[in-house]
Every structure is written in C-alpha cells, then in structure tokens.
Amino acid sequence: MAFAIEFFLRRLSQGLLIVLLVAFVIFTLLRVAPGDPIRIILGPMATATAMEETAQKLGLRDPIPVQFGRFVLDVAQGDFGRSFIRGKQGGASGGSQDGAMDMADRAPVMGLIATALPYTLLLAGLGLVFSFLIAVPIGLAAGLNAGRWQQKLGLYVSSLFVSLPNIWVGVVLIYLLSAKSGLLPAIGYRNFAYAIIPAIVVAVEMSPVLIRAIAVSIASNVQEAYFDIGQVRGIGRNRMIYRHVLRNAAVPLLNVFGAQMIGMLLGGLFVVEYIFSFPGIGLLTINAVFQRDFPIIQAVAILASAVLVLINILVDFASTTIDRRLKF
C-alpha cells in the first residue's frame, strides 16, 4: 500500500511537469507560427484598428510567458476558455467582423470537447476491439509456431498493414464498402454503423505493432527453459501457455500497449476522423488547426498528453503487480 501511494505521488508529480512542458511548447509554437487568428476571427476586410483592438482584448499582444501564466491559472480552475471561432451552437464560424468580438457568443472549449469525446471513445474502443480481433489470433499462432507458416503469416500480415497509409486505406474502404457495395455508411455519424469502417482503418494501423509484440513475446517465453521443464513435470502444453506463458508475456505487451498503441491511437484517430468527417476530438482539432483556434488546440494537446501520462503510469503500476520484481 505504502508502495502504491509513493508510486502514484511520485509519478503524478513527474507527469504534471511533463504536461506543463508540453502545454508550454504547444502554446509557444502556436503563437510564433504564421497565421494570425484575428484575421480569421474578423474576416478578410477587417480594418487594422479593429484587428488590433480584438487582439488586445483577447490578450494576444502580451508577452508569451504572461499569456501562458494566465492560461495555466485558468486551467487550474478548470477553465479552458472559449473557442475563438465556434459559436455557441458548436458550428464553425469565422469572419464575423461585427464590431469588437463578443467572447460570450463563443462556445466553451470544454463543452466542445465533451460533445466530441464520446464519438472518439466509441471509435477508439471499436478500433481497439477490431485490432485485438485481428492481432491476438495471428500473433498467438505466430508466437507458438516459430519457424512455421503461422509465423510467416504473422510477419506478412503485419508488414502489409504497416505499409498501408491510413488515409489510403480509409479512402479505399469507403469506396469499396460504402460507395460501391453500399454495405455500410461511412461519412459523418448518425448511428453505430457509421463507426465500423473508420474503426477498421484504426485497426489496420494498430494491429501490426500488436501482432509483432504478441508474437515476439510469446515466442521468447516458449523458448525459455521453464516452458519445457513445466511440461516434463507433467503440466500440459496448453495449461503452460495459458497459466504461465501468457502471464509472463503480458508485461512487455502492456508496455507496448501503453507507450506505443495509445500514442498511435491518438495520432491515427485525428487522421481517420478527418477523412470520415467523424465528429470526434480529432476532427475538432484538425479544423481548429486550420482555423488557428488556439484555445481548442491547447486544450486538446494538454488533455492528450495528460491521458498518455496517466496511461503510462497505470501501465507501469499494472506491470509491477503482475511482476513483483519490477520497480518503476
């Protein structure tokens, strides 16, 4: 118990530092990159005075550390601010040069994220389920049958999937499964069926890592002495696999899952949601980047890094409970 408390305290404080660092980098990059949000907020024909007034009002002319300090204080109170661009009803806007901009007319960032999050969770969840459905049988078969056709199959499938860009897979699947055959809907979201093709694209992107990790980790355990010794002692092969090999293989798998897959999942979802016009966090963020909607980009970046940090902490904690020898 004492270990757990010490572990979480230490890791959470480290994590907080990482999130703050990420937030600062994103915050600074947004403000030094070309593309003035005021031009997009006020539209092409806004006067220089109106632009300057709005910029002052939004605090965009203060030094970056001052802006960042103010932002962190707000975030600490749970306030991620309001979108520069999106109106209260959530629709993207821009170019409303109607006098000085009234921020009260704009949507709160947390509200936009809360609306989009369930869609992203659905897509991520379904994508993970599909990738496990693909990777577990192939990876297990490959790991248990080193040097035989199953291992080659694992290698070929993962090499094939890893070399397919998700944009291409997305477009081809929409064309084949939706436009040509009419089997499934694909664009936007009206019901569960709209998540299936995008989830397959997510699964195609994620399963190669999973297949390789399962195959390698199972194969190395099967080759270890304990696997044969156990069987000599009379424990059945399958019992050895399910009771011992899988458990020992779980630690590296968890690490792959935490460190690589969640990162990939986050990145992949952005692209997939954009191609499919799927109304989740990814689409919200990509549109925010195009529109220089700083508050949304910042909030998503902070939340994404926080999620990554938390998952890594949980994975490490789970690893120590699976294998007591490990200390993080």
């Binding site: 209260k88 409303s96 040069q97 109607d98």
Partner: peptide, 10 residues
C-alpha cells in the same frame, strides 16, 4: 460565421 446578420460579414 457566428452571426446571422448579413451585414456583419463578407
């Protein structure tokens, strides 16, 4: 845009 007033934008 965020305003439906046609005189508010181009």
């Amino acid at each position: 845009t965020g305003s439906w007033d046609p005189s508010s934008h181009t």
